[in-house]
Amino acid sequence: MLREKITPDTTKKEIGQISEISDEKILDCLQCGKCTAGCPAIHGMDIMPHQVIRLLQLGQVDKLLASTTIWGCAACFTCLSRCPRKVDLSKIMEALRLIVLRTKGNQRLEIDKVPELLAKQIPQQAIVSGFRKYVK
């Protein structure tokens, strides 16, 4: 894999959008990693939860928008309940998802496919939550 040099840029408009949507302070984070250590949904994540905040602190939103992490977050609030800095990571994940979904044409769940998914016996709760999480 080729390494590319990045330039930290905290003035990006997405950073502002994320703070506005989530109302969380990303600079509060000390990078202790307690969120990652306790995350029950970690196995599907390519970027660790604490790294999500670090990348935001460096202004690397693009990497996050392309990651699987933001879709894997179950918003269970385990991280928040243990975070020494009271950073609500699930809100930041939600903000990141919204930034993707609000871009024109982006839809993570196609409604036409729902009957098919139902046939595979996904619990209804999951479908409802999927609508909230994956659809505009």
């Binding site: 990078q31 202790c32 990693g33 307690k34 969120c35 990652t36 250590a37 306790g38 995350c39 970690i42 660790m48 604490h50 790294q51 385990t78 243990r82």
Partner: peptide, 28 residues
């Protein structure tokens, strides 16, 4: 280890400590 412990699970004989190495991103 730069990182924190998420949870400790008391086992039969030992304590299972679940943590993270924040520098490498590895779960421990």
């Amino acid at each position: 280890i730069k990182g924190m412990v998420g949870k400790i699970f008391p086992g039969d004989n030992q304590l299972q400590v679940n943590g993270v190495d924040a520098l490498s991103g590895e779960l421990l």
